[in-house]
C-alpha cells in the first residue's frame, strides 16, 4: 500500500519536527513548509493527501492560505492552531477546513482526525449504506438501524442523521447544520437544533447524557463519530 502524504504548514520548527516524528512513526510520508507561500507551492507540487495548517504564519495568515488552497485543493485540510476562539474555528470551517484541532493537542486525537479525514477523502459519494459501530444508515430505504433494528425517526431526525453519516468524523457547525436541514434564514435558530439533537440522542445513544455518536464540540457544533 502506498503511504499517504501529509503536508505540514507550520513555522514553528519544534512543532514541525514533532509532527514529523509522530506521523512518520505512523506510516505517513511527511513534507514540511515553514511559510504560507512555501506551503501553497508544495501543495501544488506534491498534491498531498492531507494538509495540516497552522493559522499563525509569518508571511500570510493561515485563513488566507486556506482560502487560496481551496480554489483547487479538494482533499482534507486540518487546522492545527493555538487560536481557540470560536470565531477563528467557525471562520476556518466556513472557509473549507475539514477539521480543527487546538494546540496543545493529544497525539491520539490528531491521528484519529487525520485518519478520518483521509477516509472521507476516499469516500464514494454514492454509497448506499454506511455503518458506524452499532448504527447503520440505508440511503435508499431512508432508514437507520441500531443493532439491526430499525429506529423510528421523524423526517427531520432522519435528515440530521443522513447529514451526520455523510460527514462522519467531521465537526459540523451549528450554522451549517441549520442551513442544511432547515434552509436559509434559520442559521441562528439554534434552539431547534438543541431540541432535535436532544431527541435524537435519546433514540440512538445508549446513555443520552454521555453521547458517543453525536458529540458536542463546545461553542462550535457537533461531530458524529
Amino acid at each position: 500500500m502506498n503511504k499517504y502524504e501529509v503536508l505540514i504548514i507550520d513555522d514553528e520548527p519544534q512543532i514541525g519536527k514533532l509532527l514529523r516524528i509522530i506521523l512518520e512513526n505512523n506510516d505517513f510520508k511527511v513534507t514540511l513548509a515553514t511559510s504560507g507561500k512555501e506551503g501553497i507551492l508544495l501543495a501544488a507540487n506534491h498534491s498531498p493527501d492531507l494538509i495540516i495548517l497552522d493559522l499563525g504564519l509569518p508571511d500570510i495568515s493561515g485563513h488566507s492560505v486556506l482560502k487560496e488552497l481551496r480554489f483547487w485543493f479538494t482533499k482534507s485540510i486540518i487546522i492545527l492552531s493555538v487560536q481557540n476562539s470560536e470565531e477563528d474555528i467557525i471562520q476556518a470551517l466556513d472557509n473549507g477546513a475539514s477539521d480543527y484541532l487546538v494546540k496543545p493537542f493529544k497525539t491520539g486525537e490528531l491521528l484519529a482526525r487525520i485518519r478520518s479525514s483521509i477516509r472521507r477523502n476516499n469516500h464514494e459519494d454514492n454509497q448506499k449504506v454506511i455503518t458506524c459501530r452499532e448504527l447503520q444508515i440505508d440511503f435508499i430505504a431512508r432508514t437507520i438501524k441500531k443493532n439491526g433494528e430499525v429506529l423510528k425517526l421523524t423526517t427531520t431526525e432522519y435528515g440530521l442523521m443522513a447529514l451526520f453519516f455523510k460527514n462522519e468524523g467531521k465537526v459540523l457547525t451549528h450554522q451549517h447544520i441549520l442551513h442544511e436541514i432547515w434552509g436559509v434564514g434559520f442559521q441562528n435558530e439554534t434552539q431547534y437544533l438543541r431540541v432535535y439533537i436532544a431527541q435524537l440522542r435519546k433514540k440512538i445513544e445508549d446513555n443520552p447524557d454521555h453521547p458517543i455518536y453525536i458529540v458536542t464540540e463546545s461553542r462550535v457544533g457537533y461531530r458524529f463519530i
Binding site: T190, R194, A198, T216
Partner: peptide, 17 residues
C-alpha cells in the same frame, strides 16, 4: 459575549466529561 440558545444539561455533562 455571544448569546446562543443552549442546553444547560448538555453543557453540564460536557464539563463533567
Amino acid at each position: 459575549l455571544k448569546f446562543i440558545w443552549s442546553d444547560i444539561n448538555e453543557l453540564i455533562f460536557t464539563v463533567i466529561q
